[in-house]
Design a protein around this nucleic acid. Structure first.
Length: 479
RNA sequence: GGCGCGGUACCCAAGUGGUAAGGGAGAGGUCUGCAAAACCUUUAUACGUGGGUUCGAUUCCCACCCGCGCCUCCA
């Protein structure tokens, strides 16, 4: 195993990753704002961070990983008010939807998945620290961060503040700020708005303070890794740095990792263009959760991912190839014994796979190593050079792959059911399928191919594909 | 305008100063009762365009064109 390289936005370079605390990774991911269903672009970032945490875990590192759920912001307050329900109830449904989606995409749950509103006290305390250090000012009951007092401002995004200062684009919103660049730490409530009564007055937290407070609450002053979409680098992450480092005097994050955006058919995804998809939209179209995960994971995270009808179809085919391979390994009949070349080949594949991931999570290279193995082993099988005992090391390699990619298990149907998508055709029980398979085998023996094909078609219509194997057996799988 | 990422075959996508991984799709073939799966063969000689450096550049430098993102709350 080589060293792990990660690209750090802060330094604009790819660096060797070494956790601050041996054996443990303290990581923070900006979670969703739960005002609606998350879209497929959101999940690009979440699948990326899942690949990252799975990879780090596979290296024996213990994860201390926090993800926030932003469950209070302007849209949430407005939408909840329109529906006449509390923001808690309003967001609860989307938090559940988010968890369900993440589960469908086989994304592991971080050690701490926390509602922002459960950490108001921590945010208040952090704002107090900033006030004590003279980093803030009050205006109309709101509290702002005075960027001019933080000389390092802009070091993450390399933004030139003079441009903003002079720019005409900054709107004067309803809050009175001393400087257009300043941002709200605490917002005073408007009439009828949800607010918290606190030591710093009534109101609600600004977006940026959430993440600083929650990250440091669970992970300490300095985190190893902070992930998010590239769009968050400015201003959100820049503001997190300003808040956290001004309060503690310590570096906030050692490695900043940003995922590039997903675009649709070469265009930005947006509601106005009509190319805006949630995960459920895709599942409704008949795509499998594993297909979506594979597609999102297969393009290296620092590259824009162009999502097209073609690319998702390609992902489906690729997963199918991998699953077919594993089924062949598990069910195939091979001559007894072992072939040293196969053992060696499996080890090489693992090494190649890991080398790809080590290189800033280059999933494309990692996948190539696995597909090379698939082809070579299939070839060996066809030539009769593959032995029964070789299945173990090769399966071991595939398991190592799936520890990270998590697409091999054929559990799409149950995941779809969990999300409330009933399969169109009624489910056949394994017994019913076996009975039909047996009948077809009988028909084939009698060379009654008409009946055999009828049965195969009948099963196909109900989502079951039959494959006759070389050794005269049959294997079936769900479509 | 400023900052950033990218432009590689039909599609997705690696990669290196010495003439291009992998996947998908297509075509032909092997196997099979037929299919499916699998395998084999095949698909880039302008690696966005134009210059430059070099014995040699897709890979380095410069310019330009195009796509996408950020520039106050969007992953």
């Amino acid at each position: 195993m080589g060293e792990i390289l990660l690209h750090n936005t802060l330094t604009s370079s790819t660096e060797r990753f070494v956790p601050l605390h041996a054996g443990e990774v303290r990581m923070y991911t900006c979670g969703p704002t739960v005002y609606d269903y998350a879209h497929i672009g959101n999940y690009r970032t979440f699948v990326f961070q899942d690949i990252l945490r799975r990879f780090l875990k596979s290296r024996g590192l213990r994860m201390k990983h926090v993800m926030n759920l932003t469950d209070v912001d302007d849209r949430i307050i407005q939408n909840a008010a329109e529906k006449g329900i509390s923001i808690f109830d309003y967001t609860a449904q989307y938090i559940q939807a988010f968890k369900d989606d993440m589960n469908a995409l086989s994304c592991e749950t971080p050690e701490h998945l926390i509602r922002a509103t459960d950490c108001i006290e921590d945010m208040v305390a952090l704002i107090e620290r900033l006030e004590a250090k003279g980093m803030t000012y009050r205006s109309d009951g709101s509290i702002y961060y005075r960027i001019a007092k933080f000389p390092d401002y802009g070091k993450l995004s390399k933004i030139d503040l003079s441009g903003i200062q002079a720019g005409a684009r900054v709107e004067v919103d309803r809050y009175e700020k001393a400087d257009a660049r300043d941002f709200a730490l605490w917002k005073s409530p408007k009439p009828g708005e949800h607010f918290w009564e606190t030591r710093i007055g009534p109101g609600r937290p600004g977006w940026h303070i959430e993440c600083s407070a929650m990250a440091m609450k669970f992970l300490g002053d300095t985190l190893d890794i902070h992930t998010g979409g590239i769009d968050l680098a400015f201003p959100h992450h820049e503001n997190e740095i300003a808040q956290s480092e001004a309060a503690t005097g310590h570096p906030f994050v050692r490695y900043w990792l940003h995922a590039e955006h997903l675009i649709i058919d070469g265009e930005k995804m947006s509601k106005s263009l009509g190319n805006f998809y949630t995960l459920r939209d895709l599942l409704k179209k008949g795509h499998k959760p594993s297909t979506v995960r594979y597609l999102l994971a297969s393009v290296p995270y620092r590259r824009q991912l162009n999502f097209t009808a073609d690319s998702i179809q390609q992902a489906a085919s690729s997963v199918e190839r991998l699953r077919n391979f594993v089924a062949r390994l598990r069910e195939g009949k091979f001559p007894a014994g072992n072939n040293a070349a196969m053992q060696k080949r499996a080890k090489e594949a693992i090494a190649g796979f890991e080398a790809g991931l080590e290189d800033d999570l280059n999933t494309a290279v990692a996948l190539a190593a696995i597909f090379d193995l698939v082809r070579d082993v299939n070839t060996a099988m066809d030539r009769g050079e593959f032995r029964q005992q070789d299945a173990v090391p090769v399966l071991d390699a595939m398991n190592k792959f799936d520890e990270i990619f998590a697409v091999l298990e054929d559990n799409d149907a149950s995941k779809l059911r969990a999300l409330g998508f009933a399969s169109a055709s009624e489910e056949l029980t394994a017994e019913q399928i076996e009975a039909l398979v047996a009948e077809r085998q009988q028909a084939r023996k009698q060379r009654n191919f008409k009946r055999a094909d009828e049965i195969r078609q009948e099963l196909a219509d109900r989502g079951i594909l039959l494959e006759d194997t070389r050794d005269g057996g049959i294997r079936w799988k769900k479509k």
